[in-house]
Amino acid sequence: MLPPVMAGVDGSAESLAAAEWAAREAARRDRPLRLVHAWNQQPCEGAGPPSAAAQRRVLRQAEDRIRRTCPGVEVDAEQVEGPATGALLHAAERAELVVLGSRGRSGFTGFVVGSVALGVVARATLPVVLVRAGEEASDEHLPAGDGSPSTRTGYQDVVLGLDLGDPCDEVIEFAFEAARLRGARLHIVHAWQEPSPLGLGPGEIGLVHGPEQADEWLGFLDAVIKVWRDKYPEVEVVETVAEGRARSVLVRAATGASLLVVGRRTSERPAGPRTGPVTHAAVQHVGCPVAVVPHE
Rank of each mutant, 00 (worst) to 15 (best):
A133F: 02
E135L: 05
E135S: 04
E136W: 01
S138F: 02
E140P: 01
H141S: 06
L142D: 09
P143I: 03
P143D: 04
A144Q: 10
D146I: 03
D146W: 00
G147H: 11
S150N: 04
S150Q: 06
T151V: 14
T151I: 11
T151Q: 10
T151C: 13
R152T: 15
T153D: 08
T153R: 06
T153L: 04
T153V: 11
G154V: 09
Q156M: 14
Q156F: 12
Q156I: 12
D157E: 12
V159I: 07
V159Q: 02
L160K: 04
L160A: 08
L160C: 10
G161L: 09
G161I: 06
L162G: 09
D163K: 00
D163G: 00
L164F: 08
G165K: 05
G165F: 03
D166E: 13
C168S: 13
E170N: 00
V171C: 01
I172W: 00
F174K: 04
F174H: 11
E177M: 03
A178K: 00
A179V: 01
A179M: 00
L181D: 08
L181V: 07
R182W: 08
R182F: 12
G183A: 05
G183P: 03
A184P: 07
A184I: 03
R185S: 13
L186I: 04
L186D: 05
H187A: 13
H187D: 11
I188Q: 10
I188H: 00
V189T: 05
H190E: 12
E194F: 06
E194D: 14
S196C: 06
S196Y: 05
L198F: 08
L198C: 08
L198Y: 09
G201L: 10
G201F: 07
P202V: 06
P202W: 02
G203N: 05
G203M: 05
I205Q: 10
I205G: 10
G206S: 02
G206N: 02
L207I: 06
L207P: 01
V208L: 12
H209A: 14
P211W: 01
E212Y: 00
Q213L: 09
D215H: 11
W217Q: 11
W217H: 15
L218A: 15
L218M: 15
F220A: 08
L221K: 05
L221M: 14
L221F: 05
D222G: 10
D222A: 09
D222C: 08
V224N: 04
I225C: 07
K226W: 02
K226P: 00
V227P: 07
V227K: 13
W228V: 11
R229L: 14
D230P: 12
D230T: 14
K231T: 15
K231H: 15
K231S: 15
P233I: 10
P233T: 10
E234T: 14
V235G: 07
E236I: 11
V237R: 01
V238T: 15
V238E: 15
V238N: 11
T240Q: 13
T240Y: 00
V241D: 02
V241N: 02
V241I: 06
V241L: 01
A242V: 09
